[in-house]
Each structure stands twice: as structure tokens, then as C-alpha cells.
């Protein structure tokens, strides 16, 4: 509690909603970054790093030999990431081999190379793997021209991704068009988790979560809803702001940058649209907000946290 006098007369009990019921479905990751300052060498250049810095921070202060893509990475100061899932930020260190620069801590005396064959291969293959599961219909996508996946693909000179792209209509899942404010097209999602962190860690709304596993991993809703409009979304838009691709888009921008090819639009390029019945919803709030419920039962038989409580 602050010692500022303005707080002295105020309640000790904060009246903001507690975040205890929020269950984003993601791991309890440690803080990334170094615990102390370090001096390291990247591509032959000496770099000083502060406490809290990652190798990626260090790489970004200089002109590196290789392009460290770091697609899923976002500003950690914004309480988002590093998720370290896309693995397109791999660099090679002499001591630890190939490591993800977005979350690896610089340690004093470390020598890093960004342009070794192994590091480049790792970034290239992982970027192509991302594209293999991405609807690459850029011309009918509202993010065309301001898409981070598109940017890094161009930066990395991707011409013919080795695993192809997802373009057969029967491979595509439906677009969630239920909300009048935010549209979800999971065919473009790279599961970077930025939206989930924006929704839970920044806005503390507890709407979005990571769900499923393996092939079925996807962004879903903490109340188990199938569509955005049945979720507890308050339409703040932070998820769409942080989304690196066209997976989460503000409705007004859905066709903002699509190319004017006669007969082709964003929506008719999809296999199916769900949630048409919610067109022209008059309120920003989703109907479910007042009936908050979650489906987040722990997987373990008894929570270890309760064990600690009854010990004392």
C-alpha cells in the first residue's frame, strides 16, 4: 500500500474484482530475462545488457548478421509474453546450443551467433511450419499490408514454403462473426497467446483462454462458449490490437485492406460463418457477462495449494 496521504482514508480492501477465477489455460511461466547485467558478444559485437533483458533485447540493439524474426514476441513491458512458442527467434550460443532469444537470459561472457546454419535452419523451418497451418489468402484478409506474419515472411524471403499452406476450403474452420465488434478467424491464428494475455493479464477480463491440445489447440472462451457473442467479452478490443495476424479483427476493418478482386471477399473465402444471428446487436456487452461461469476444474486430484493452507 502506498504511503501517499491520499490513500490513508481509503478502504484497505480493494473493490476491484479479484483475478482468482481467471483461468487462461496456460502454464505458470517464470519471468524471462536475466537477473543481472551482463556483457555478451553477438556476431562479434560487444553488447551490454541490463537486468531483465533477454537475448532478443540485446539482438535488437545492434545490426545482426541474421534476421531474428521473433514473430510471437510482444513487448514484455506490456505484460504480454514472451510466450516463446513460434521458435522463429532461435540463435546459436556457444555454450547452450540453439536457444530461443525471446526468452533466454544473457549471461556474462556469452557468445551468440545469429547467422549460423543451425540457427537459420531453425528459424526458416519454424516459420514454414507456421505457414503450413495458416490460411494464406492474403488478398481477402483485412490485415493485408499490416500483418506481422506477412512482414516476417517477406523479410525472410519466403517464396515457396516447404510444407505448403492451408488453402483447401475443406481444411478451413468456420469464421466466428457473432460479435458486432470483433471477428475471429482461427484459420489465421498462430497461437501466440498475445490475445489471451491481453484479455487476462492486462484487462483482467478473463474471457479468452487457450484450450485443447495437440492438433485441437485453439483460442476459446473461459465460460465454454462456442462463439464470441456467447462469451463474457466486453468488446474492449485489446485482443484485436495485439493480434499479429488476421485472426482477431475489428469488424469495421474486416475488409479494409482486401484487394478489390471481383467476386472475392473475406467472408466468402471462408468455409462457413457462425453467429450470423447476432447481427446488429445493440449493446457492446455480450449477454453472458452477468452470468459469469467458468469450466476450469483442476486436473490434479487435490490442489497442492490447499495442502499448504491446511498445514499451518
Amino acid at each position: 500500500m502506498s504511503t501517499d496521504p491520499i490513500w490513508e482514508q481509503s478502504h484497505n480492501e480493494p473493490e476491484v474484482p479479484l483475478a482468482e477465477d481467471i483461468a487462461p489455460g496456460t502454464a505458470n511461466d517464470p519471468d524471462a530475462g536475466a537477473t543481472e547485467r551482463a556483457t555478451i558478444t553477438i556476431d562479434g559485437q560487444r553488447v551490454e545488457t541490463e537486468a531483465g533483458a533477454t537475448l532478443l533485447d540485446a539482438c535488437q540493439t545492434i545490426e545482426t548478421s541474421g534476421d531474428v524474426l521473433a514473430l510471437c514476441s510482444y513487448d514484455e513491458n506490456a505484460k504480454i509474453g514472451p510466450r516463446s512458442e513460434c521458435r522463429t527467434c532461435m540463435v546459436e550460443t556457444e555454450r547452450h546450443g540453439v536457444v530461443p532469444s525471446c526468452s533466454f537470459p544473457p549471461r556474462d561472457g556469452m557468445t551468440v551467433h545469429t547467422d549460423t546454419e543451425r540457427a537459420r535452419e531453425a528459424r526458416d523451418v519454424n516459420l514454414d511450419l507456421l505457414l503450413s497451418n495458416h490460411n494464406l489468402l492474403c488478398t481477402t484478409c483485412g490485415k493485408n499490408g499490416r500483418c506481422e506474419l506477412q512482414d516476417v515472411s517477406i523479410e525472410n524471403n519466403v517464396v515457396d514454403p516447404r510444407y505448403g499452406v492451408m488453402h483447401d476450403r475443406d481444411q478451413l474452420g468456420p469464421i466466428d462473426d457473432s460479435s458486432p465488434f470483433i471477428q475471429i478467424d482461427r484459420n489465421k491464428c498462430i497461437l501466440c497467446n498475445r490475445c489471451v494475455e491481453a484479455c487476462n493479464d492486462v484487462q483482467v477480463e478473463g474471457v479468452l483462454r487457450m484450450e485443447g491440445s495437440g492438433d485441437d489447440t485453439r483460442i476459446g472462451f473461459q465460460n465454454g462458449a462456442e462463439t464470441m457473442m456467447e462469451s463474457t467479452c466486453v468488446s474492449c478490443g485489446h485482443c484485436a490490437t495485439v493480434c499479429p495476424t488476421g485472426a482477431l479483427l475489428e469488424q469495421g476493418l474486416v475488409d479494409a485492406t482486401t484487394l478489390p478482386v471481383p467476386g472475392f471477399t473475406h467472408k466468402n473465402s471462408a468455409e462457413e460463418i457462425v453467429g450470423r444471428e447476432y447481427d446488429h446487436q445493440p449493446t457492446q456487452r455480450t449477454p453472458m457477462k452477468s452470468e459469469l461461469e467458468t469450466q476450469n476444474e483442476p486436473q490434479a486430484s487435490e490442489q497442492f495449494t490447499t495442502a499448504r493452507a491446511d498445514r499451518s
Binding site: A23, G25, T26, A27, N28, R209, M210, E211, S213, Q295, N296, E297, P298, Q299, A300, E302, Q303, F304, T305
Partner: peptide
């Protein structure tokens, strides 16, 4: 062990 409902 921490009781997360989804394990990753």
C-alpha cells in the same frame, strides 16, 4: 501439481 485445469 499446481492444479491447472489445462496442462501444457
Amino acid at each position: 501439481i499446481e492444479g491447472n485445469h489445462r496442462i501444457e
